[in-house]
């Protein structure tokens, strides 16, 4: 019986060598190891063996089964490996074909820049105040120390609706409204963003409609040096830590002293280039200490409190920040323009 078992092993291993398909392998598994297979057939004769022979033959039978199984398993693995390889090969994609992107639009560059500026001031403890775009002459001019017939009104020719109602020429009326709403309380720390309107012929640097962000701070002992410090913080967050500011004396009816503020040229870093007309500086905002008349009209006693105010054009900052050549692009809304601002 031992010989028959050994013979079976030899025959099976011999036959397994020539297996080529998983089907053939399975057939041989059935043929040798199946319930009705050759090995079972031989072991049926175990009953006729002596008690001494039985464990010996049993051991041989197990060895034969293990030997055949091991070859079948390894063949099986090889077939599976090959099948997997074939499948992966068949599934290979052209990874250079474009993906199915998520849709992407864009926030308008003016609002993108305005939000950035707002966030800087929110971080400095400011709240945002808003007001109407159609204003009364009182809030737009008179309460800002610009009585009727004041020569400075020429500086900002306006769109009137009636003798007393006009398109606001700056967001300063929001400052007046804020002061009145505060009822003499301090501190006031607001910025006022929004659209403003001035009678200007449109060209590459002028638009009759544009956006401003103005700031107002009122409190006890607010000094001009605080204004300088605040603006320096702002420009360094907006334009980078290397940015410096330079104040030049100027005139606004609602502030005194007043200043125009230049920032280190964003293009050349102050070395001088075409953009800054070789001065190293770019004018970006106007500011000053709140005029006592304006404080009085806003319900404050200029002997008790002081304040500063500043204002900038969002278009101007956006032009500088992105190197845009023509302010009119902001209002023609060409998709080829807008789509350039849909990223961080």
């Amino acid at each position: 019986m031992k010989e028959r078992l050994e013979g079976l092993r030899g025959e099976a291993l011999q036959e397994l060598q020539h297996v080529e398909t998983p089907q053939q392998l399975n057939d041989l598994r059935v043929k040798y190891l199946g319930k009705k297979g050759a090995l079972t057939e031989i072991l049926r004769g175990m009953g006729g063996l002596s008690a001494e022979e039985r464990p010996v033959i049993g051991q041989v039978a197990n060895d034969v089964r293990a030997a055949i199984e091991s070859v079948i398993d390894s063949k099986q693995d090889a077939f599976q490996q090959a099948e997997t390889n074939n499948r992966l090969l068949a599934e290979t994609l052209d990874v250079t074909l474009p993906g199915k992107g998520l849709p992407s639009g864009a926030i308008h560059p003016l609002n993108k820049v305005a939000q950035e500026i707002e966030d800087i001031f929110i971080g400095l403890g400011y709240t945002i105040a808003e007001g109407p775009e159609v204003e009364t002459d009182y809030y737009n001019f008179e309460a800002l120390n610009l009585p009727k017939n004041h020569p400075a009104r020429d500086m900002q020719d306006s769109f009137y609706v009636t003798d007393d109602i006009l398109m606001r020429t700056h967001t300063s009326p929001v400052q007046v409204r804020t002061m009145k709403a505060m009822n003499g309380q301090t501190p006031v720390k607001v910025i006022c963003p929004g659209k403003v309107y001035r009678r200007d012929d449109d060209d590459a640097t002028h638009s009759f409609q544009f956006n401003q962000i103005e700031g107002l701070v009122i409190g006890k002992n607010i000094r001009m040096s605080d204004l300088k410090g605040t603006l320096l913080q702002f420009v360094q967050q907006m334009f980078g830590a290397q940015a410096q500011i330079r104040l030049r004396p100027s005139f606004f009816p609602f502030t005194e002293p007043s200043a125009e503020v230049d920032v280190t040229c964003v293009q050349c870093g102050g070395k001088g280039c075409r953009m800054c007309k070789h001065t190293g500086w770019l004018e970006i905002l106007g500011c000053g200490m709140v005029h006592p008349r304006v404080l009085e009209m806003g319900g404050y006693d200029p002997e008790e409190v002081s304040g500063f105010a500043f204002g900038m054009g969002v278009e101007r900052i956006a032009l500088l920040k992105y190197g845009i050549d023509d302010i009119r692009h902001f209002y023609t809304n060409d998709l080829r323009f807008l789509s350039q601002f849909g990223r961080m």
């Binding site: 040096s225 300088k228 104040l247 004396p249």
Partner: peptide, 23 residues
């Protein structure tokens, strides 16, 4: 000279800034 005016920070309490609900 405006350049000769120092650069300082506002004295007093720091209040947190925020957006209004519409904003």
């Amino acid at each position: 000279g405006y350049d000769n005016i120092p650069t300082t920070l506002i004295h007093g309490d720091v209040v947190p800034g925020s957006l209004t609900k519409p904003q």
